[in-house]
């Protein structure tokens, strides 16, 4: 089967919506979970960003949340199908407990992403495309510009709270 760049873009959009929706649902931008996440949020605000978006980026950095769950679920489904995805959900839960986090966001994101990736593999989008798509999705949040990404996340958090 030849590769299709459109598949990677579709996978990136789906992964982006999945992890942002679950992180916002579990109120990650509300406060920094650990002191390191709060410090990252404050530094991003000092550099011109928005504080809730900075807290959410700090939480993504310092604990495996729904973004890590989506990536590892895509890896698990790529190798071993749905059981592999559920195994990664268990591993993400263990990692969350190690990082002093309740672990709801990561585990929920992993389980939903498992079934989303499996469903898209039935209609012809390979799970490998979802691995690349999740890498592109996390690049748009963490890797391009912390100022603009934190403002975008703060806007979305305003809608969620309203």
């Amino acid at each position: 089967m030849p590769a299709d760049p459109l598949h990677i873009l579709i996978a990136a959009a789906v992964s982006w919506v999945n992890f942002i929706a679950i992180d916002l649902f579990f109120r990650l931008p509300e406060r920094g979970g650990v002191s390191g996440a709060s410090e990252i949020g404050r530094q991003i605000e000092a550099g011109g960003g928005a504080l809730p978006g900075g807290y959410m980026m700090g939480n993504i950095v310092s604990s495996p949340d729904a973004s890590a769950g989506t990536l590892l679920a895509a890896c698990g489904v790529f190798i071993a199908g749905v059981p592999g995805g559920l195994l990664t959900a268990l591993l993400v839960y263990l990692g969350n407990r190690v990082c002093h986090d309740p672990g709801y966001a990561g585990t929920t994101g992993c389980i939903t992403a498992t079934f989303i990736v499996y469903g898209f593999s039935l209609i012809g989008i390979s799970p490998a495309s979802f691995i690349a798509g999740m890498v592109i999705a996390i690049l748009t949040i963490q890797g391009i510009s912390s100022v603009h990404a934190s403002r975008l996340l703060a806007t979305l958090w305003g809608w969620r709270r309203a």
Binding site: E39, V61, S62, C75, A80, L91, G95
Partner: peptide, 30 residues
């Protein structure tokens, strides 16, 4: 994961990812 598709690679990827997350957490907290 893409270099070597094998069941143990899931655990290797998860261990690596959780390890670096824990490391970032410790560096930022300290």
């Amino acid at each position: 994961v893409l270099i070597l598709p094998h069941p143990l690679t899931i655990i290797a990827a998860a261990a690596y990812f959780i390890g670096t997350t824990l490391e970032s957490n410790a560096i930022a907290s300290t």
